[in-house]
Nucleic acid binder design. Structure first.
Lengths: 123, 123
DNA sequence: TCTCCATATCGATGGGCGTCTATACGATCC
DNA sequence: GGATCGTATAGACGCCCATCGATATGGAGA
């Protein structure tokens, strides 16, 4: 688990209710979460993340991904770097190829913070 | 529930697993979700949302919120407008005051898309 | 070693956005 | 109706960022 990333206490995470909704976020918390959301807040990066996750083995190399977009290779590489540096993608080099893999824990923490883990809790 | 907002099928929502991780997001889906995340991806707006949610009755007027920030009133007003227009805040005018209220359903849908609704599903 | 291929870095550019000041709107009260 | 108070809009400015073309890096094969 990546408690350190969002700095959710185990209680907050386990309590299974929206920390965002329970008590006011501190300035520090907000400034730590915002960059993560900013990294996600791009159509290309959302699709990249989803493509990587849905790929066989949960990982994909750049060559697998670039074809899905009408963008240049440097641009794709840039987006992958953003996702990697923020902690949403793991990066592994095997031979000439670089494989990216989704860090599910980060996404899970983020979702817990945003919406909690209540299945039918819309009220 | 606001299925229409993110356009999650009931199955995707109920299936309670990360749609983002299950199959590649369509271009249309990504372009619909990204603005929502972009609206959230700002420290001030995160804190605004959280302040509104944590306020008594789940709603707060601008005057309650502005004091928590070192920003001008128009700037706060601008951020509230962004959150309102994207569907994260409801807006009600009572007399001279305007009250904002968090739309929990939108947040819940978003969280379901990002991380699913699995309590301890980090893997 | 030379070449080729996959990926990353660099520098430039155009557009979007967070913030400000100034001002407008609209409701309440005297 | 005029003053006042809460909130929103308008316009301007500076910075960040998505994208590009050009180039660098570095492993694999001949």
């Amino acid at each position: 688990m990546s408690k350190s990333l969002l700095e959710l206490t185990p209680v907050q995470t386990v309590a299974c209710c929206q920390p965002l909704m329970r008590e006011p976020l501190s300035v520090a918390q907000a400034e730590r979460v915002a960059p993560l959301l900013k990294a996600l807040a791009d159509p290309v990066r959302l699709r990249l993340l989803s493509l990587v996750a849905a790929h066989v083995g949960g990982e994909a190399c750049v060559c697998d991904l670039a074809d899905a977009f009408d963008l240049t290779q440097p641009t794709i590489s840039h987006h992958l770097k953003v996702l990697h540096e923020i902690g949403l993608l793991d990066r592994t080099k095997r031979g000439v190829w670089v494989y990216y893999k989704v860090r599910t824990d980060t996404l899970t923490d983020l979702a817990a913070l945003i919406g909690g883990t209540l299945p039918g809790s819309a009220r």
